[in-house]
Amino acid sequence: MHTQNVNVAASESSKTWGNGPKICVSANDLRTRWHTTNADGKTVTPSEGKHYPARNGSYGVDALLLDETDVIALMAAGHTALPCLASSGGGMTALYDLGEKAAGRYLIASRGQIFYRTDSWQEVRRKYIRRASEVRSEEVQKFLDNFDAAMAAGLDLYKASDVARGIISLENALNPATENQATTDTADTTLNEIPF
C-alpha cells in the first residue's frame, strides 16, 4: 500500500512538469550536472526520479532531475543551490522552493527522487510532514530489524549497532576477513598486532 502511495504521488507530480529537457542537478550546487553514458559512450540524461545513492547506502536528496528552465530561472534569481525550506533528520526528505516563475513552485524530494510538486503552500506542507515522518519511521524500523538480527546472531551491542547502521555487513561482522592483515616472511609479526 505504501508503494502505491509513493507511485501515485510521483506520477501526479510529474504531470505538472513541462516537456523541456531535464537535467540532473545537485541540491547543494546548481552548476553541477550529472550525466550517465550508454553503451555507445553517448551522454544520456537519467530517467525522471532516478535514484542517486548517498555515501551511507541510503538514498539522500542531494541529486535531482529538474527541468532546464527551472534551473536557469533559479540561477537567474541568484541562487547557487536549491533554496531548502525544510529538511528531515538524515536528509532523507527535503522541501525546496523553486521560485514564483516555476510551474510547481514547491518540490518535495525524498530518497533521491522527486516525490511531489505543487504550487500550493498549504498542500505541500501537509504532504512534506507526512512523507518525512513515513520515511523516518521506515528508517527506524529498518535499523531495529537489522539490529535485532545482529543481536540474534550473537554480536555484542557495538557490533550490532554497526551492522544496523550499515557500516559493516552481518556476514563480515560474524566472519572478519583476515586477508588484509600484513604478513612478513621474518619472525617479526608486530604488524599483525597493530589494532587498526
Rank of each mutant, 00 (worst) to 15 (best):
M1T: 12
H2P: 07
H2C: 04
H2D: 12
T3K: 07
T3M: 05
Q4Y: 10
N5V: 00
N7G: 07
V8S: 12
V8H: 11
A9N: 14
A9C: 15
A10R: 03
A10D: 01
A10I: 03
A10F: 00
S11P: 03
S13F: 00
S14F: 07
S14A: 13
S14E: 12
S14M: 09
K15V: 08
K15A: 11
K15S: 07
K15Q: 13
T16H: 11
W17F: 09
W17I: 01
W17E: 06
G18M: 06
G18A: 04
G18W: 09
G20M: 04
G20A: 10
K22M: 12
K22W: 01
I23Y: 05
V25S: 05
V25A: 07
V25N: 06
S26F: 05
S26Q: 13
A27C: 15
A27T: 15
N28E: 14
N28K: 15
D29A: 15
L30W: 00
R31G: 14
R31W: 02
T32L: 15
R33H: 12
H35T: 14
H35G: 14
T36A: 11
T36M: 09
T37M: 09
T37E: 10
A39P: 04
G41P: 09
K42Y: 13
T45H: 03
T45G: 06
P46R: 08
P46E: 08
S47W: 02
S47K: 10
G49L: 03
G49K: 02
G49R: 03
K50L: 11
K50T: 14
H51D: 14
H51Y: 10
Y52A: 15
P53R: 06
P53S: 10
A54E: 11
A54F: 07
A54R: 08
R55K: 15
N56H: 04
N56E: 07
G57N: 06
G57P: 08
S58T: 13
S58F: 04
V61L: 01
V61C: 15
D62E: 13
D62V: 09
A63G: 05
A63Y: 00
L64F: 03
L64Q: 06
L64W: 00
L65C: 05
L66W: 01
E68C: 11
D70A: 01
D70L: 01
V71N: 10
V71I: 08
V71G: 08
V71D: 09
V71L: 04
I72T: 15
I72L: 13
I72P: 04
L74M: 09
L74I: 02
L74S: 04
M75C: 12
A76E: 15
A77L: 04
G78K: 03
G78H: 02
A81L: 04
A81G: 10
L82C: 13
P83W: 00
P83R: 01
A86Q: 15
A86H: 14
S87A: 13
S87W: 06
G89F: 07
G90F: 05
T93G: 01
L95D: 01
L95I: 02
L95Y: 03
